[in-house]
Design a protein around this nucleic acid. Structure first.
Lengths: 412, 412
DNA sequence: CGCTATTTGTTCAGCGATTGAATTATTTGC
DNA sequence: GCAAATAATTCAATCGCTGAACAAATAGCG
């Protein structure tokens, strides 16, 4: 999902406007201060006349609004600043996870305008019932959003599992889901979003992928290529390359948890041996730290672990060091393979980053050939546990910014 | 390098024509039979009037020519078929490797029109001298190409090492190169190619990357996403995602040779331990097979190994099986991470594929979670050892097809 | 206070490229 | 030899960008 959208087919007269709408809107979104029409003209290379015409369309379509401009010294007619509208289209983010349901609404500017988390153990709940609960929460979210002038134009659902192109959840082991046809189940409920050309009403994707997208669009903007690792019961990675999520041939990329770190080591549920998950998965760390697994909610176990480490508990520190080393071996391999310069530790890892980063960095330093010439940054996620739902909603909002023509009633 | 090119900046009136030129030319290149103007109109969605105008430009610019059309049954005025011109622009491919220099010329259609391989041990030769020899061979290649009506519009050089964005060869260990400023050294010679807007006169890239590009554009067209592994002294991978080479943040992607397969195993020259290269590199295989390394040229050692395996030599078979298993562990990790469905064994591995494929497939089957739902293909390269130089030349020719406006004298 | 320089934003004729319908060209089948 | 069918071209209409002129609004300066 890059900012500039390559026209797939015929380029007609109208495509010109479509592309320039996206170009100008993208600039407004990327700017750190409200740019004037003149600023946009010099930045894009279009004439001021064209920019004015394009901006008029964007204003009429509630995608941007005028504001105080960036202050300027010297003479001249004062500029009118342009910002992304705080009313108009917005994205709906949904998440089903092991111990909570989450719903959020993100506007064009990437602001989280509404957020609900409903804690509950979802494992014993049938998929259809879980989704029904989610739809109910989302319904109130939509109403609240509508009262703020926001129109939901699409929804994205984050699931901790493998998702097919058409939204079928093939397997979500920790949730106990298998071959759940999410779009069909949701079709039984009244629609939550308004249909807009070019924006799918519902997208279902892996939690780790959407969390990576959330990190990509978090402010201030970070690098355009990075590896985002979600450390939960399983370990998932979202791979962002040149500002776009890489989903793989069938959308199943990011299974970093089964990278071998000890090929003749512990057997893994995937059928392999010595997979990363067996050494740096949440269960492995908790067990290694000597914590009994009486505390069910994953985030509680993580918080307890962080507490112990903070207090200097040697078992916890050793467990974290070993997990970090295993993680570092895997990450070093990925960095060698993809030449990334940023690794983000998200999900459960975010809170443990102070203890995980050093061993990860150590392994990278010793195993990555090119580390000598250009350093690799390892840092915690900025969104933490909220990343997936926020990323889901943000991915919808971003789509409007990338392809505004659909919302504006053109053929997109 | 996708076929459709996203305009980076302002989209003006002329961009329209640029984009449609690329669209139509891309269709002609992708078609398996010479399409008529009418075929192109229905395929692209443009009107026949527009296609005629666009094709006129392409004909005038020597990018396509008319030919016998695909035969059609029934009445009607016969169509005129359009094919990529066998005269006009062409790409120059260059390669410096440990024991040979290679030069080739590839036309728009991807045909290798000229090829020279000069065998010599390049390790004792100074970089400037090696490049001087290469330029001399390339000069005659250019003259031969010119006599066939071909104009070289750009060159790409394949090097077995790490290359910077600006063409500086940071490190080519097996060649003994370090910090070699290739563009500066080549600037001392008279230019080999004609300058065309939008096409860099010289591109320097890793051998494995360019070999992957060669495989991507080999006919018949294969999948748009795959992993191409060049098994030489080192092991390099070219990652092709959605028809484009993924180069990484600094262009150093593909270092699969240092993926850990036995984290506490043999020390590696990279500083890590148990890297793939130590178990599946050419030296490792040859040593494990009990061959003395008196035979210096790498391809001879590989050929000998294939001979022995063919004859059923148990040491050779065991060495290949072990190497294949190590390779399979690494490849399984990559497939899990990137969700690719095709792995191509190239370079030295191409000839050994019959013995390497089974253990690689076995590791994939046991370690890749999603292999149950959709199988992974492992096959030898179609170009073999010629892949890098052919891929280099092809990448230049492809650029003209993707952005014909530059060649046609427009601002590209 | 008024004038000038300066910058922003708009208006409008001109133009390039695509469209769609009409027209011409060329073949097969009857 | 004529009608039907398909390919390709011609041409007025239209859409959207450009460039230059113009209107709007402010700071600086005497």
């Amino acid at each position: 999902m890059s900012l500039t959208h390559a026209p797939a087919g015929a380029v007609r007269q109208g495509s010109l406007r479509e592309l320039n709408l996206a170009l100008v809107l993208g600039r407004i979104a990327a700017a750190d201060r409200p740019p004037s029409r003149a600023d946009l003209a010099t930045a894009t290379g279009l004439t001021r006349a064209t920019v004015s015409a394009v901006v008029e369309d964007l204003l009429a379509g509630q995608l941007v609004s005028e504001s105080e401009p960036a202050p300027r010294a010297g003479a001249g007619r004062p500029a009118r600043g342009l910002v992304l509208a705080d009313q108009g289209p917005a994205g709906l983010g949904l998440e089903v996870n092991v111990d909570y349901l989450a719903v959020c609404v993100v506007d064009l500017a990437g602001q989280v305008r509404h957020r609900t988390v409903h804690r509950a153990d979802l494992r014993p709940v049938a998929p259809a019932d879980a989704l029904a609960q989610l739809v109910e929460i989302a319904g109130t979210a939509r109403d609240v959003a509508a009262s703020e002038g926001l129109t939901l134009v699409g929804a994205a659902l984050a699931v901790p599992g493998l998702v097919d192109d058409d939204g079928l959840v093939r397997l979500a082991p920790n949730l106990g889901w298998r071959d759940v046809p999410v779009p069909a189940l949701l079709a039984a409920h009244p629609p939550l979003v308004e249909q807009v050309p070019g924006v799918p009403a519902l997208m279902v994707d892996n939690e780790a992928n959407l969390a990576a997208l959330g990190e990509l669009h978090a402010r201030p903007p970070g690098p355009a290529s990075f590896l985002h690792i979600s450390g939960e019961v399983g370990i998932g990675a979202g791979i962002v390359l040149d500002g776009a999520l890489f989903r793989g041939v069938r959308g199943w990329s990011g299974e970093i948890g089964h990278l071998p770190v000890h090929p003749e080591g512990r057997p893994c549920r995937c059928g392999g041996q010595g997979c990363l998950e067996q050494y740096a998965g949440q269960e492995a760390i908790v067990t290694a730290a000597g914590l009994t697994r009486t505390e069910l909610p994953a985030d509680t176990a993580t918080a307890r672990l962080a507490e112990l480490a903070e207090a200097g508990d040697p078992d916890a520190l050793r467990a974290l060091h070993d997990a970090g080393t295993a993680l570092g071996v895997a990450v070093a391999g990925v960095v060698n393979l993809l030449d990334l310069d940023t690794v983000v530790l998200g999900g459960g890892y975010a809170a443990l980053a102070p203890w995980l980063c050093p061993p990860v960095l150590a392994e990278i330093a010793s195993r990555v050939l090119t580390a000598a010439w250009s350093p690799v940054t390892v840092r915690p996620s900025r969104l933490g546990a909220e990343a997936a739902a926020v990323g889901a909603a943000g991915s919808v909002a971003r789509r409007i910014v990338a392809q505004p023509a659909g919302w504006l009633g053109r053929s997109g």
